[in-house]
Design a protein around this nucleic acid. Structure first.
Lengths: 145, 145
DNA sequence: TCAATATTTTAGAACGATTCTAAGGAGTTG
DNA sequence: CAACTCCTTAGAATCGTTCTAAAATATTGA
């Protein structure tokens, strides 16, 4: 038995390697470590900085530059999606499906709103020569005193 | 009838001074110059950098730091609204009413979508202890080839 | 009007997230 | 294993934005 970390991690190492290969990315130690953190359990919303901390905490030693590179490679491969809600930092969402977000401004945290529940009507058609790439809804929340 | 939008600029200097005073801001040369650029004609979506260029172009000489300060002061006073659609830079919108945006990703430009036309249904209620500050819809556009 | 006081402006330094560089390390293929 | 290509990395560089503290300007009251 190799990994004591969990009895049933949802992303087996084999799956992850296949996933990387399918994306044209070599399954390096660093990418596997990050992939495990990102795709093992439930959906996540991470920044480069916090993923780097996670990795360090788990004992994987890799540079911040690698985290940035990897997040972008994963995003280009369609494994992640970038979410912009805050001018300071960029978030990456492991949920690449159609959905929207709650943003907790106080704490700088994101949470998914399932896309099926939300309907948007009355959008004008896009200006000539352009087409819609995506419609993003962000519900900005503040904590109530 | 005070303002003929045409030859007379819609924001008379006097109005602007009153507006600044009402916001608790002294009507300095710099704030008046920026106020004229921002509130004179139609709604605008500016970045600090581009407003600074505008000001320079018009012959008002002020520092970039002042543009930043002023944009934030105007925002705090409710005269502007901040829009975040791009990790690189922050936009300020002279339309402070309820409305949404088209974002032209190629060109980095924003355009208003009147809020009345758009309806959003099926939003879950916010988590306990929080309340909605604002719901923002961004329609990301790409130019069609 | 002028002096006294409070606010603003500003140049330049500082900052923080992100990207770049170029050199060494690691995965792959035969 | 050799040869090749791709990846990682430390550190420098970038860029938008904020901070600093000193000089400039607006306001107030006499």
């Amino acid at each position: 038995m190799r990994s004591t970390v969990s009895k049933a991690v949802s992303a087996h190492k084999g799956d992850l390697v296949a996933k990387l290969r399918a994306a044209g990315l070599r399954p390096t130690r660093q990418r596997i470590a990050l992939g495990k953190l990102l795709f093992a359990d439930c959906d996540r919303h991470v920044t480069a900085e916090c993923l780097h901390q996670d990795a360090t905490r788990v004992g994987a030693s890799l540079s911040l530059a690698t985290v940035y590179n990897t997040l972008h490679q994963f995003t280009n491969a369609g494994l992640l999606r970038q979410v912009i809600v805050d001018g300071e930092k960029t978030y990456f969402d492991t949920n690449t499906g159609d959905h929207h977000h709650f943003y907790f401004e106080d704490r700088g945290l994101l949470a998914d709103i399932p896309g099926d529940d939300v309907r948007i009507d009355g959008l004008p058609k896009p200006p000539a020569g352009t087409e819609i790439e995506r419609v993003e809804v962000v519900v900005r929340l503040k904590s109530r005193d």
